[in-house]
Design a protein around this nucleic acid. Structure first.
Lengths: 193, 193
DNA sequence: GTCTATATCGCGATAGAC
DNA sequence: GTCTATCGCGATATAGAC
């Protein structure tokens, strides 16, 4: 079998996804993933630090999308509008990636250990975005707040989108930003509807 | 030593905190925690499902604080102001708890596995808050957005507070809410400063 | 409480790729 | 011939089953 590390890595990722879909995360051993990919267990652990991480290998792309999107927004656009544009820009790749990400989301949702890892990945991404915003001249506090808030809107939109199979993610994103603006920026003494 | 389950649980939590502070999370085994608490390893795992969970036993109080605080806000207060008041109400207990929570934060920050668990606990708390807001009559989308956003402000304030030892948490919270209102609700065409 | 599966990692040897 | 991925074996500790 091929000696290229990258290929083995991809075979491992595919094998893991298949096995987890077939039997569920807990019922699959690292040795089985390795066997299906045609390598030994030891090789598995050289590519991935633990059994969970195989699933999130593709998530690195998300970081790239965000980084590129934010870089493409002119530097003179203020913080919040810049983040809004960034979110809009990554809607398209997210929608294109829907089939894969839906399957992944299903596995993750069903497994507490994977939900933990996913939550931690999200936190890391928010902190990366914070760093990028600081690079644009924002204060740390401001950057962190904007990154958290904008990511919250997107994450919530994604959740709603997954729950409503026919809809477009862009619609949920727009709705989220509008809702947020109304809630946070609007008149504060309004009585409940 | 006492036979009360609750007491053993507390001794385990204290022993774990001590050992983790002394040697770091990874260099401590569950058996050692149990030994210092005067019980067997098996007893440890009866109280806590894994090695990480001992540290977060106290976090249940946070959920209680939030639940009680939100319940104390009159039902006719709109969503966002209600969450703002809720956050204000839990500032006091958080400040009172500072010494313990600072030590915990230090251990968590130094250990990836614990950061994951902490991120997951936060996500769970946000979803609990979302449920409470839905109970007040909000739509799921609205509730989730408000819960995420308000928690983001608090979490960010806590981080800034920890970084600046002399300050009061309330100040950081106020600053965060003001900042957010200005960013999200303010004029959108402003040029950068 | 005891027993066991299995995740995870260290080490030395081997064998494709360039 | 070097690299470096991979192998094979062994050790330890978590976590769950009986």
């Amino acid at each position: 079998m091929p000696r290229s590390g990258q290929e083995a890595r991809e075979r491992l990722a595919r094998a893991a996804l298949e096995l987890f879909l077939e039997r569920g995360f807990d019922a699959v051993t690292a040795a089985e993933i390795a066997a299906r990919a045609g390598v030994t267990e030891r090789t598995y652990f050289r590519h991935f630090p633990d059994k969970r991480e195989v699933l999130f290998d593709g998530e690195r792309r998300l970081t790239e999308w965000v980084t590129e999107a934010l870089a493409s927004v002119p530097a003179d656009v203020p913080l919040w509008p810049a983040m809004r544009r960034t979110v809009d820009l990554i809607v398209a790749p997210l929608e294109a990636n829907r089939p894969d990400s839906d399957r992944l989301a299903a596995i993750v949702k069903a497994t507490p250990a994977l939900r933990e890892r996913a939550a931690s990945k999200e936190a890391r991404l928010v902190s990366i975005i914070t760093g990028l915003l600081v690079g644009r001249g924002a204060s740390t506090d401001e950057a962190a707040l904007v990154a958290r808030t904008a990511w919250g809107v997107l994450a919530q939109a994604i959740e709603a989108w997954r729950a409503a199979p026919g809809t477009s993610l862009q619609v949920h994103v727009d709705r989220g930003f509008t809702l947020l603006t109304g809630l946070v920026g609007g008149a504060q003494g309004d009585p409940p509807r």
